[in-house]
Design a protein around this nucleic acid. Sequence first.
DNA 1: ATTCAGTAGTAGAACGTTTAGATAGCTACA
DNA 2: TGTAGCTATCTAAACGTTCTACTACTGAAT
Lengths: 340, 340
Amino acid sequence: MKPKSITLNDIAKKLGVSIITVSKALRGHPDISKKTADLVKKTAYELGYTPNLIARSLASRKSNTIGVVLPQIAHHFFSSLMDQIYTYAHSKNYAIFLTVSQENQMMQRTQIQTLLAMRVDGILISITQDTSDFEIFEIAKKREVPIVFVDRIPNLKNCNTVTVDDKGGAYKAINHAVKIGYKKFAHFAGSSKINIGRERILGFKQALNDNGIEVKNNWIIEGDFVEKSGYDSFMKLFNENDLPEMILAVTYPVAIGIYMAAKEVGIKIPEELDVICFGNSHVQEFLSPPLSCINQPTDILAKQSIDLLISIIDNSENVNPQSVVVDTDLIIRGTCVIKK
Amino acid sequence: MKPKSITLNDIAKKLGVSIITVSKALRGHPDISKKTADLVKKTAYELGYTPNLIARSLASRKSNTIGVVLPQIAHHFFSSLMDQIYTYAHSKNYAIFLTVSQENQMMQRTQIQTLLAMRVDGILISITQDTSDFEIFEIAKKREVPIVFVDRIPNLKNCNTVTVDDKGGAYKAINHAVKIGYKKFAHFAGSSKINIGRERILGFKQALNDNGIEVKNNWIIEGDFVEKSGYDSFMKLFNENDLPEMILAVTYPVAIGIYMAAKEVGIKIPEELDVICFGNSHVQEFLSPPLSCINQPTDILAKQSIDLLISIIDNSENVNPQSVVVDTDLIIRGTCVIKK
DNA sequence: ATTCAGTAGTAGAACGTTTAGATAGCTACA
DNA sequence: TGTAGCTATCTAAACGTTCTACTACTGAAT
């Protein structure tokens, strides 16, 4: 068994005061005189006291812990988001329980269950692409554990969301491409079961409409958000001999899939086929060619969602759900540049 | 305040049995008959009971939680490692508290303090490049909270480590390059304050020695492990007009820094200068040119370190520290290929 | 009949903290 | 002199579990 660690009781005994006095002194509670408080702190330090956060959580019914559920972590958007979430939450004195659902709805559900069992104060989640069962979110709501959805959100009324302006981002990119002379556009669209897929399609279509370009339905190819999907979609069009001039890739991995496939069959980017994607990473600068993108600012995304979550945790009577939308910006590198 | 959640007590009352019976029944303890256990489980489900893991941890003095401390997360090696750690720990029924020290020794220290306060069952850590204060590790040891160091380890006797064969990896890469005709080698070595830096230098030197090539000291440039360091080191040599034929970059980001600098001044990779680095990511396939590397298998690293940590947690009497070393493999793409 | 072993369950304390609500001693004011 | 209002501290209960040790019963072996 563990060596018994130093507790409030040990300090109290040594000083001949009560446990409460020690507890309050250490937390800087005004009940205790400065003199006593200083003495307590000094003794605690000397004894090597470490507060037991588990006991504190149990007694105070507050864990100062946020549960984070991400569909993936080894992809740049999410690891960058996680970095920002961690840093910002830490500065607000919250610890992070990380879980990764691996795009698996069942895992996501059990992970939320576990987070609830751990009595996290709130949950920050980016849902799997195929989330169709919303019951678990209702369960959390019933338990009054606030949830903030970030980036990937469910199709539900009355929930707190922080998203990027996906529609506007897609519009911006296509509009830019039209201005420099492109006319034939495809969109490798990921899954339209999820908001980011749907919104990006909407922005894509609207940009074409506003520019008087016809939307060709078999140039909007659904799939998912990883490399293979980009690869397969490209190959489909290539084999049908039906390539467009420009592809809007729904994510950075999908763009990588396109790069893979194009390389394999000897199609030159950007000369024969051009690409732009959602999601930035400075490595894109060194791809061949350097990949232009619609940047989703993970720092703002993280800050907004943590702020929102903590504000709900702190005054749970205020139940008006909020929807925050964060702007994107276009980063043009070596793709999406050729004047036609 | 929170709505009171369902507790063992609620179930016990409803069924007219004791709390203990319910507790044991839910945990599948053999004390309880199947009939009773089934009834309890059914009732628990109906009432929507969620065990309170905080209370359980307090009572059982076991949190089933592992604290992870990484120097960074938004870099591929660490996010990939984290992915594997999470997945494997989860399969072993452990939750993960993630902290990110941002290469800051002071933050690292307070994060370990916090993890101790949270009463994690063990800590998995990759230390900051400049860790010089080992006291905190001693504190953890005194508290009998096991620590496993992974990849980046301190210069300490008697600790549990899981590393890749850095020396062997560097040796392998240089040896390969020599075989295809290279003779002039530099090493952008990161910090030699930390094992990975030191070991890679050792392997680099030994490979040169074994091949009868002189080690030129101003071609071993120390720095740190990020892009800027690769960029600066390259520029230093370039400005001194003292470029080698081949650079061994201590990490993937350092290699990216070299790519940046080379592009800026118009040096062609791999024709005029060649590069290989530690660390793999499938995106490297699509860099220009595709970047060859010494692969550090994060899945094995994660599995070995979690296994080791859990084995120490489970039988803490066995105190013989272990050092696991994982093999690397060379992945040759579009660099490190030109026969001279 | 007595003992033994096994099964099914229970009682009470413990884990280390916080919270709400005393208490006790002091000062000041009418 | 009484009371109001401070300050500094304490008492008791609570948080929701699990652990150690015990009881009560059953049936079989002696």
